[in-house]
Simulated scan of single mutants.
Amino acid sequence: MTAVYDTIGINYAALRQPDPRIAATIANALGAARTVVNVGAGTGSYEPGDREVTAVEPSIEMIRKRPATAAPAVQASADELPFDDKVFDAAMAILTIHHWPDKAKGLRELRRVTRGPIILLTFDPAQRPWLTDYLPELAALDERNMPRLDAYADWLGPVRIEPVPVPHDCTDGFLYAYWRRPEAYLDARIRSGSSSFWSIGGLDAGLSRLADDLASGEWDRRYGHLRAMDQYDAGYRLVIAD
Rank of each mutant, 00 (worst) to 15 (best):
M1W: 06
Y5G: 00
T7C: 00
I8Q: 04
G9T: 11
Q17W: 03
Q17N: 12
Q17C: 12
P18Q: 11
R21N: 06
A24E: 15
A24T: 13
I26E: 02
A32I: 04
A33G: 07
T35W: 08
V37S: 01
A41D: 05
T43H: 07
G44K: 02
S45C: 10
Y46E: 09
E47W: 09
D50M: 01
D50L: 04
R51Y: 12
E52P: 00
V53L: 11
A55G: 02
S59Q: 09
S59G: 07
I60E: 05
R66W: 07
A68S: 14
A70P: 06
A71P: 04
A78P: 00
D79W: 04
E80K: 15
F83E: 03
D84Y: 06
A91D: 09
M92R: 10
I94N: 03
L95V: 14
T96E: 12
I97N: 12
H98Q: 14
H99S: 03
W100Y: 06
K103A: 12
G106H: 10
G106I: 02
E109C: 04
L110T: 13
R115A: 13
R115L: 07
P117H: 09
I119G: 04
T122E: 11
D124Q: 08
A126C: 09
R128D: 08
W130K: 10
W130L: 07
W130Y: 10
W130I: 02
T132D: 13
Y134S: 04
L135E: 06
E137Y: 01
L138F: 10
A139L: 12
L141T: 09
D142F: 02
E143H: 11
R144H: 06
N145E: 15
M146K: 04
M146S: 08
M146Y: 13
P147R: 05
R148S: 14
L149A: 11
L149D: 14
Y152R: 00
Y152A: 06
A153R: 14
A153T: 15
A153C: 06
W155E: 13
W155D: 13
P163F: 02
P165D: 04
V166A: 10
P167C: 12
H168T: 05
H168A: 15
L175S: 12
Y176Q: 04
Y176D: 05
A177T: 05
A177L: 07
Y178M: 09
Y178Q: 12
R181Y: 01
P182N: 13
E183L: 09
E183C: 01
Y185C: 07
Y185T: 03
L186C: 11
D187F: 01
S192K: 01
S192A: 12
G193L: 04
G193D: 00
S194F: 10
S195L: 01
W198D: 09
W198N: 08
G201K: 11
G202Q: 11
L203Y: 01
D204R: 09
D204S: 13
D204A: 15
S208D: 15
R209N: 10
L210H: 08
A211S: 15
D212T: 14
D212L: 11
D212A: 15
D213A: 00
A215E: 13
G217Q: 05
E218K: 12
E218W: 00
W219R: 01
D220V: 00
D220L: 06
R221Y: 05
R222Y: 10
R222K: 14
G224D: 11
D230C: 07
Q231N: 08
D233G: 07
D233C: 04
A234D: 03
G235N: 06
R237Q: 13
R237L: 00
I240Q: 05
I240T: 14
